[in-house]
């Protein structure tokens, strides 16, 4: 490889399209993982603060186990280990195509790699999301709940209308950070053969030997996705400030 091939002519359209397909997979998997880990994380955070000792301990153990081992090893475990732990029938079902019909839209059945990547990333990311949501719930001062109680509100409305909105406001910025991590971590799924953006960049690189172009475009795509999430966060923060100013004026 010489320096001329480093900055040589641009990539052919065909290869750029490979990268775009990779980006598409990265975004899809990340979205699925973000939604799943937020829902699961929310549920586990509630269990974590439930006050039932066994439940609290179980959630804490889950969080410690999944946070303190590398995602790559977890993905390998699911990818290579899961088929041995499932029955043959279940594996056959997972590997054969099914048609999902959601509201008249037919979705094609994802590959085993895609399923395992989504599962593995969700299990890993949930361990982080739980802690962010729990921190958010803990960040709501106790007097908020007590004052609502004094007003005669019932436990569920207190949680739903007093505690939850404030907790989500505290948890949103760190949650967005976790969503960025999910996008970045999805690159590890290439190790189990998921054709996402990093995998595609390696493919283009070994096909064309245009190392610089292949990695530069892939890197730009990642930055683009992260920038979109960052922009969402900035917009939200700006709205919050505007709201606070408006409240200040009326008070």
């Amino acid at each position: 490889m010489t320096v001329t091939s480093l900055f040589g002519e641009p990539l052919a359209t065909q290869y750029v399209l490979w990268l775009v397909d990779g980006l598409d997979m990265t975004v899809r998997v990340s979205l699925a993982v973000a939604v799943a880990s937020t829902l699961l994380g929310f549920l586990l955070a509630l269990l974590r603060i439930s006050g039932v000792r066994v439940v609290t301990l179980l959630v804490a153990t889950y969080v410690a186990l999944f946070r303190n081992t590398p995602l790559l090893v977890q993905l390998f475990f699911w990818y290579f280990g899961l088929p041995g732990l499932l029955s043959d029938d279940a594996m056959l079902w997972l590997n054969s195509p099914h048609v999902l019909s959601v509201g008249g839209v037919e979705l094609s059945w994802p590959s085993f790699e895609c399923l395992v990547a989504t599962l593995g990333l969700t299990a890993y990311s949930t361990a982080f999301v739980v802690e962010e949501i729990r921190a958010g719930l803990r960040g709501v001062p106790d007097h908020q709940r007590l004052s609502a109680e004094a007003l005669g509100m019932q436990p569920w409305p207190i949680f739903r209308y007093v505690v939850l909105p404030q907790a989500l406001r505290i948890a949103l910025p760190p949650l967005l950070g976790q969503y960025m991590n999910i996008v970045k971590n999805s690159s590890l799924a290439m190790a189990i053969g998921l054709v996402e953006l990093s995998y595609a960049s390696r493919q283009v690189e070994s096909e064309t030997f245009k190392t610089f172009q292949a990695f530069a475009i892939a890197t730009l795509f990642y930055i683009l996705v992260i920038a979109v999430i960052e922009a969402v966060g900035q917009c939200w923060a700006w709205q919050q400030r505007a709201k606070a100013r408006a409240m200040g004026k009326t008070a």
């Binding site: 996008v183 970045k184 590890l188 990695f215 890197t219 990642y222 930055i223 992260i226």
Partner: peptide
């Protein structure tokens, strides 16, 4: 903003 994996490639 970039994945560790991408930086390792670089």
């Amino acid at each position: 903003a970039i994945p560790v994996l991408m930086l390792i490639f670089w």
